[in-house]
C-alpha cells in the first residue's frame, strides 16, 4: 500500500512544499489583523497549550475543559468566531485561557487554520500543543493513568515531535435527536457507538501524509461520492516550532517530514484517537444552520445533501456497530497503538 517515492521526485515535492509552507505562514501573518485579543493569560515555559477555534459550543465547553485539564493542559488559547450563545462570556471568565475574537469568515481563513497558524507562530514556539475543536476529545494509550506531560516526555525521548490521533466518530443508537445529553457530563456515555473497521487509508505523496476516510459518515452519507467523505487523519499533539504551518485543518502539516508519523516497515508507532462528539442531539438543529452558513466544506454545495440528511435526524447505528469501551478496546481493534510505550 505504501510505495516509496523515487528520490528525485521526493526532493522536488519537498522543494514545492517548502514554498507552500512559507506561503501559508506569510498568509497567516497577513491575516493576523482579523484577530482581536480579548483576554491575555500567562503560562509556564513548559506548559502544554491547547489551541481551539470555537463557535457556539457552550454545551460542550465544560466537559472539554474538564477533559483537557485532567490530561494536564496548562493553558487554553481560544479563537471565538462570533459565537451567538454565551460561549464567549464563559471562555472570558476562565482563569487559564487566552481569548481572541474574530468576526471574519471561517472559510476564508482556510477553515480557521490561518488564525491558528498565526497564534501558534506567536505563542507556541517550543511548547507541546494540542490543537482540537470543542467536539474533539483526545485520548491515547494509558491516558487515564499517564497525563500528557508523561507522553510528551516520552515522545521527546523518541525524537518524535508529532503524535497522530485519527478522528473516531461517536454516535448514539437511534435517531440523532433522540439521545439525551446533559451539558457538563461525559459525552461518551450518550454517544457510545462507533465504526470499528471500515476505514480506508491512502498515502498522499505530495504531503507524504495518510488520508484516512470512512466511519459512519462515509457509510451513511457518502456512498455515492466516497472521495468526498470527511478526512479523519489528525495530528492533534505537536511540539511546535515557528517553521511549521498547518496545511488543511490538522490533517497535515509542513514541513513534509512531520507527516511521517506512521511506520512503513512492519512496526507500529504510537497513535491516539480523537473522540468526535459531533453527533450530540443538537447536531440536527446545527446542520440546518450550517447548511445556510456554508462555512465548513471546500465545495460547499456538494455537501447540501449531507446537511439535509443530518437535519432529518438519521440513525447512524447499524448491527455491526461497536460499543465504545475505552482505549484498550480501541488499541485491540487496531485504531490506536501504544507503539512501544509500554
Amino acid at each position: 500500500m505504501f510505495t516509496p517515492l523515487p528520490n528525485a521526485l521526493d526532493r522536488w515535492y519537498r522543494f514545492r512544499m517548502d514554498w507552500k509552507r512559507r506561503r501559508l505562514r506569510a498568509r497567516a501573518i497577513l491575516r493576523r489583523g482579523e484577530l482581536t485579543c480579548l483576554r491575555r493569560g500567562s503560562w509556564d515555559r513548559d506548559a502544554i497549550l491547547l489551541f481551539c477555534t470555537i463557535r457556539n459550543e457552550a454545551e460542550r465547553l465544560d466537559w472539554f475543559l474538564h477533559h483537557y485539564r485532567t490530561l494536564g493542559v496548562g493553558h487554553f488559547i481560544f479563537v471565538d468566531n462570533d459565537s451567538t450563545d454565551d460561549t464567549r462570556a464563559r471562555v472570558l471568565a476562565l482563569p487559564d485561557a487566552t481569548v481572541y475574537a474574530t468576526g471574519a469568515s471561517y472559510k476564508a481563513a482556510r477553515f480557521g487554520m490561518d488564525w491558528i497558524n498565526w497564534l501558534m507562530l506567536r505563542h507556541a514556539q517550543g511548547h507541546w500543543c494540542v490543537v482540537a475543536d470543542a467536539d474533539e476529545l483526545l485520548i491515547y494509550p494509558h491516558w487515564q493513568t499517564r497525563p500528557l506531560p508523561a507522553l510528551t516526555k516520552w515522545l521527546e525521548a523518541q525524537g518524535q515531535p508529532v503524535m497522530p490521533a485519527m478522528m473516531l466518530e461517536l454516535y448514539p443508537k437511534g435517531p440523532l435527536d433522540q439521545a439525551v445529553y446533559a451539558p457538563g457530563t461525559d459525552p461518551t456515555t450518550c454517544l457510545d457507538w462507533f465504526d470499528a473497521g471500515n476505514y480506508t487509508i491512502t498515502h498522499k505523496p505530495l504531503l507524504d501524509c495518510l488520508l484516512i476516510q470512512g466511519g459512519p459518515r462515509a457509510r451513511c452519507f457518502f456512498e455515492r461520492a466516497p472521495n468526498r467523505a470527511p478526512t479523519l487523519t489528525k495530528l492533534p499533539l505537536i511540539r511546535w516550532s515557528w517553521h511549521y504551518a498547518w496545511v488543511n485543518s490538522t490533517h497535515s502539516i509542513l514541513p513534509r517530514a512531520l507527516n511521517r508519523v506512521f511506520a512503513t516497515d512492519t512496526g507500529e508507532r504510537v497513535a491516539g484517537a480523537l473522540l468526535h462528539t459531533k453527533f450530540l442531539p443538537t447536531v440536527v438543529e446545527k446542520s440546518r444552520i450550517e447548511k445556510v452558513r456554508a462555512q465548513h466544506f471546500g465545495d460547499a454545495p456538494v455537501f447540501d445533501s449531507y446537511y439535509d440528511s443530518v437535519a432529518q435526524a438519521p440513525d447512524l447505528w447499524c448491527p455491526a456497530s461497536t460499543r465504545y469501551g475505552g482505549w484498550e478496546q480501541l488499541e485491540d481493534l487496531g485504531l490506536m497503538s501504544r507503539g512501544g510505550w509500554a
Partner: peptide
Amino acid sequence: YFELAERQRFEGRAGLYMQSRFPSFDVAGT
C-alpha cells in the same frame, strides 16, 4: 509485558493498516 510492547513497536500486528502502521507491500516475510 515489555516484550509485547517492543514487538508491537517493531514487528506490529500483521494485516493491520492504520494511522501509525502503513507498511509497503514488499517488506520481506510478512
